[in-house]
Measured scan of single mutants.
Amino acid sequence: RPMNAFMVWARIHRPALAKANPAANNAEISVQLGLEWNKLSEEQKKPYYDEAQKIKE
């Protein structure tokens, strides 16, 4: 299954978030990633939607 825009973004940002929160488990990191993603504007998300579309094609 191809990655969606959030997954493209999260793949880039997960390592830094995990390093900054070494005690957090994957579920907690995923929740935090979701919160951070939701704070982004549509303009900030656009490159990730574009990349996800390329992956689908």
Results as ranks from 00 to 15, higher is better:
13 H>S: 05
14 R>K: 08
29 I>L: 11
17 L>C: 05
18 A>M: 15
31 V>R: 15
47 P>H: 04
13 H>R: 14
10 A>H: 02
36 E>I: 15
20 A>G: 06
28 E>N: 04
12 I>W: 05
16 A>C: 13
14 R>C: 11
27 A>H: 14
14 R>V: 03
50 D>Y: 09
19 K>Q: 09
2 P>W: 15
30 S>Q: 12
13 H>E: 03
23 A>V: 06
3 M>I: 14
34 G>H: 15
42 E>T: 11
40 L>I: 03
53 Q>I: 10
51 E>W: 13
13 H>K: 08
29 I>N: 01
13 H>I: 07
34 G>N: 13
39 K>C: 05
27 A>W: 14
46 K>G: 04
37 W>K: 00
16 A>P: 04
23 A>C: 11
56 K>M: 15
48 Y>K: 01
5 A>R: 01
25 N>K: 07
55 I>T: 07
40 L>C: 02
48 Y>T: 01
28 E>I: 07
26 N>V: 09
22 P>L: 04
19 K>T: 06
55 I>Y: 10
14 R>N: 02
25 N>Q: 05
19 K>M: 11
1 R>T: 12
6 F>M: 03
34 G>F: 15
42 E>I: 11
17 L>P: 01
30 S>I: 14
19 K>D: 05
43 E>Y: 08
18 A>C: 09
10 A>I: 06
45 K>L: 02
27 A>N: 10
48 Y>L: 01
13 H>Y: 11
41 S>A: 05
49 Y>V: 07
50 D>M: 14
54 K>R: 14
29 I>R: 02
35 L>Q: 10
39 K>G: 05
47 P>R: 06
32 Q>E: 05
57 E>V: 10
47 P>S: 04
43 E>C: 05
50 D>G: 04
56 K>F: 14
40 L>P: 01
51 E>L: 15
37 W>T: 00
16 A>W: 09
19 K>G: 04
34 G>K: 15
23 A>W: 15
50 D>V: 13
8 V>M: 09
52 A>D: 02
27 A>R: 13
19 K>P: 01
51 E>S: 06
12 I>K: 09
47 P>M: 06
32 Q>M: 15
17 L>A: 04
55 I>H: 08
5 A>L: 01
50 D>W: 09
5 A>V: 02
45 K>M: 03
54 K>G: 06
20 A>P: 02
32 Q>I: 15
48 Y>S: 01
46 K>F: 04
11 R>C: 15
40 L>V: 02
34 G>Y: 15
9 W>T: 00
13 H>Q: 09
9 W>L: 00
27 A>K: 14
28 E>C: 04
23 A>N: 14
53 Q>S: 10
51 E>A: 13
29 I>V: 05
42 E>P: 13
39 K>E: 04
12 I>T: 06
5 A>G: 09
44 Q>G: 05
47 P>C: 05
38 N>E: 11
37 W>P: 00
10 A>M: 07
38 N>K: 13
5 A>E: 02
46 K>P: 00
34 G>L: 15
35 L>F: 09
17 L>I: 14
14 R>A: 10
46 K>S: 05
52 A>R: 02
34 G>T: 15
22 P>F: 02
32 Q>W: 14
43 E>D: 11
33 L>I: 03
37 W>E: 00
12 I>D: 06
26 N>M: 10
30 S>L: 13
18 A>E: 15
4 N>K: 06
43 E>H: 08
7 M>Q: 09
43 E>R: 10
55 I>C: 07
9 W>Q: 00
4 N>Q: 08
12 I>L: 10
32 Q>S: 05
45 K>G: 00
13 H>G: 02
29 I>S: 01
40 L>D: 00
22 P>R: 04
40 L>E: 01
26 N>L: 10
6 F>W: 02
54 K>L: 10
40 L>Q: 02
25 N>I: 04
25 N>T: 15
16 A>V: 14
11 R>D: 11
31 V>I: 13
11 R>I: 11
41 S>Q: 03
8 V>A: 05
36 E>S: 07
51 E>V: 11
42 E>N: 10
6 F>V: 01
57 E>L: 11
41 S>N: 08
4 N>F: 09
54 K>D: 05
22 P>S: 04
30 S>H: 12
31 V>W: 13
12 I>N: 04
57 E>H: 11
8 V>G: 01
29 I>P: 00
27 A>F: 12
52 A>H: 03
1 R>N: 11
4 N>A: 07
20 A>F: 05
7 M>H: 07
21 N>P: 01
9 W>A: 00
6 F>L: 02
41 S>P: 06
28 E>L: 06
2 P>E: 15
53 Q>T: 08
37 W>L: 00
35 L>W: 09
5 A>W: 02
56 K>H: 13
6 F>D: 00
53 Q>H: 08
3 M>Y: 13
35 L>D: 05
5 A>M: 02
16 A>I: 15
1 R>S: 12
8 V>S: 03
24 A>G: 03
53 Q>D: 11
52 A>S: 05
47 P>Q: 05
4 N>P: 03
26 N>C: 11
57 E>S: 09
19 K>A: 13
9 W>H: 01
12 I>H: 06
6 F>I: 01
38 N>D: 10
11 R>G: 07
33 L>A: 03
53 Q>N: 11
43 E>I: 10
33 L>T: 01
36 E>C: 11
8 V>P: 00
32 Q>G: 03
34 G>P: 02
25 N>V: 03
46 K>A: 10
57 E>G: 10
18 A>N: 05
6 F>Q: 02
15 P>Q: 10
17 L>K: 03
30 S>W: 15
30 S>M: 15
57 E>M: 09
36 E>F: 09
48 Y>M: 01
46 K>D: 02
44 Q>Y: 05
40 L>F: 03
40 L>S: 01
24 A>W: 15
42 E>W: 15
24 A>Y: 12
57 E>A: 09
30 S>R: 13
34 G>S: 14
41 S>Y: 02
1 R>Q: 11
29 I>A: 01
22 P>M: 03
32 Q>F: 11
18 A>K: 15
8 V>C: 07
23 A>D: 13
39 K>Q: 06
33 L>E: 01
2 P>I: 13
